[in-house]
Design a protein around this nucleic acid. Structure first.
Lengths: 147, 147
DNA sequence: CAGGATCCCGCTAGATACTG
DNA sequence: CAGTATCTAGCGGGATCCTG
């Protein structure tokens, strides 16, 4: 059993490190918002429509129905839409309201917490719009230098 | 060919939508920072060490060597470390300096752009620390309600 | 020391079909 | 209308081995 000292100890240290990283609030936040559809759903519910090319999103937060979201987020599959909405509901970022009409009507709306997250996303957005072209420019020159 | 109208048109709309989303600066930023190792490398170079449990990161930005980063980020594989550093260099977020000693010495340091991104990450971090416990609490009650 | 080259595996997004 | 169930392929990421 003397052979496990070196590699094994490193492996264990790694596990502990990973666990620590996973417990970090920033990491958890990133895991949540880095999901492609999460941000789009937030944007949809946050300003009444996902931002489109020309129109600079000027809507107000409002509730939306399942089918409305599905239409707005053109590329999403039913599975991912449902799954993402569920997880957001679970985290208290939005509310799911079922109205027992025939057929049933379900609507989704951001909570205060969800709105707060949406606001922070707009901060991200402004950083992105300020600096991403620099990044892309750097990327271009880097790629050109390789040839 | 009359059978392709419905499904096919939706498919095309989806492709265009996806392309639009991919071109969005916010999306590109998210794709970059949502990478697990990117944020950790940023944190490491940004304050002299990745934040640890007790010590509330109070270091200063400084250059680090490859092996130093590898030791600090205990869980990372060589492959991912190299790969991530390369992509960050490509984007102009850090510089890679080779000193032709024997054996070679390579050091990495954040650029101004990289520091700016690191600052924004700290904004994220503060949001996370303020609100993530709410999220986790909601998650707990939601799970309890299901039983 | 710093990194390139391969192989391989688990996860998950997506398509399809069905239902209360 | 608003989902659920199932199956599958693709790929990100890790482990391992090798080099200037």
């Amino acid at each position: 059993m003397a052979t496990m000292t070196a590699a094994q100890q490193r492996a264990q240290a790694k596990v502990q490190y990973d666990a620590f990283v996973a417990a970090c609030p920033s990491r958890q936040l990133l895991d949540r918002i880095s999901d492609k559809w999460v941000t789009l759903i937030l944007a949809a519910l946050g300003n009444g429509s996902p931002h489109r090319a020309g129109t600079d999103c000027a809507g107000e937060p409002r509730a939306m129905r399942y089918s409305e979201l599905a239409r707005l987020l053109a590329g999403i599959s039913q599975k991912m839409l449902t799954q993402t909405l569920r997880s957001l509901e679970r985290d208290g970022l939005l509310t799911r309201t079922v109205t027992p009409t025939v057929p049933v009507t379900v609507s989704y709306e951001l909570t205060d917490l969800g709105l707060s997250l949406y606001d922070m996303m707009r901060g991200l957005k402004s950083w992105a719009e300020t600096h991403m072209d620099d990044v892309l420019a750097n990327r271009g020159t880097y790629d050109a230098r390789v040839d």
